[in-house]
């Protein structure tokens, strides 16, 4: 039997740079109220959301990803040619084949990297980050671009008063590269497929094509069930990620949960008993829920506004449709 040479990777991996893109159009609650019977006060009290960004026809999944990637690559201090892998997490790129990752890789000038899309809902960033870390440490790529991107406005039922106000559009990207120190902790991740109906697309595309129903598919969820799972079950996962990284909440500088809803964020912080000194991402107020894009977008904003700084220790946790989740401790770029 021939002896196969093992791959040579980096000792560890880290997030080297982050970038985001928010569509130009800012949509206040007043616009949402044109199609649902509700109020600004009700929307704010249930979600903490005041405004969100909705993409124009020109702000495609690829375009937003390319903008975010350019910033992340510049922030990482590398060139596009050095990118050896592009991972895109999205549920709202409507051309399923080929993977949008290949178009993005080409248009940013990355040459011929491995490029593929993943579907992990609002946990997509953590799933992509974990794959990227594996690629860098295993040696199949030196630098990997991880992109979370969504145009959830395309999957929003504007007449559903429970969800019309929730979703937004945008892209967030990070570059993962080699490190001499562990700067991305062990990932605690998983799925609970028995709860697949709690967050889902209303109907599959083929049902819509066949005419039942006539309404375009949209995202729908069971609010109370999702809230209970997100707050109380995900707080346990967040704690497990801290334990796996060998730290406690006292060691944390920043907490970046998926920006689903301010009420979920507030309750998670309470349930986790996070110390006062921990900065909590609350980007959902002006960005809405952007699914896979929410964590890198929130990370970029915390760093850009000085609320967090390079070298800070952050707990990130994504959770959503599947149900799926992924939590890990990272050092901010």
């Amino acid at each position: 039997m021939a002896k196969i040479r093992p791959s040579q990777g980096a000792p560890y991996a880290r997030i080297m740079g982050v970038g985001g893109y928010r569509p130009t159009r800012v949509v206040p609650n007043e616009v949402i109220l044109e199609t649902i019977d509700s109020s600004d006060e009700w929307i704010r009290s249930r979600s903490g959301i005041a405004t969100r960004h909705w993409a124009s026809d020109e702000e495609t999944v690829a375009m937003m990803s390319i903008e975010a990637s350019g910033k992340a690559i510049a922030d990482a201090g590398i060139t596009p040619e050095q990118i050896g892998g592009v991972i895109v997490s999205t549920v709202s790129h409507f051309k399923q084949t080929p993977a949008v990752a290949t178009e993005i890789a080409d248009r940013i000038g990355a040459g011929k990297p491995a490029a593929f899309d993943i579907s992990a809902g609002c946990a997509g960033f953590g799933y992509g980050l974990t794959l990227a870390k594996g690629m860098v440490v295993e040696g199949s790529a030196d630098y990997v671009l991880v992109i979370g991107v969504e145009r959830l406005s395309d999957l929003t039922d504007l007449e559903d008063r429970a969800t019309a106000f929730l979703f937004g559009d945008g892209a967030g990207a990070v570059v993962v590269g080699p490190s001499q120190e562990p700067e991305i902790g062990p990932t605690v991740w998983g799925s609970e497929g028995d709860k697949s109906n709690t967050i889902t697309q209303t109907v599959p595309w083929d049902d819509y094509r066949n005419g039942t129903p006539e309404k375009f598919p949209a995202l729908t969820q069971e609010g109370q069930a999702v809230f209970r799972w997100a707050v109380f079950e995900m707080a346990k996962i967040a704690q497990q990620a801290l334990d796996a990284a060998g730290i406690t909440s006292a060691d944390l500088d920043v907490f970046i949960p998926h920006q689903a809803n301010m009420r979920i964020i507030d309750s998670m912080v309470k349930t986790l008993k996070l110390p006062e000194h921990v900065t909590v991402a609350r980007d959902v107020e002006t960005t809405g829920n952007t699914s896979a894009a929410s964590i890198p977008l929130a990370m970029e904003r915390l760093l850009a506004t000085g609320q967090a700084k390079s070298g800070d220790t952050a707990l990130v946790i994504g959770f959503g449709a599947g149900l799926v989740y992924a939590a890990t401790v990272v050092t901010l770029p």
């Binding site: 009290s45 249930r46 069971e222 609010g223 109370q224 069930a225 809230f227 209970r228 707050v231 109380f232 009420r263 309750s267």
Partner: peptide, 25 residues
């Protein structure tokens, strides 16, 4: 409200050692 109700239910579950499924809430 509906979300605070979930918090009440979870706290009640812990306090009274009872399970209250989402469908019953």
């Amino acid at each position: 409200d509906s979300l605070s109700m979930v918090e009440v239910v979870v706290a009640a579950e812990e306090r009274f050692d009872v399970k209250i499924p989402d469908d019953d809430v």
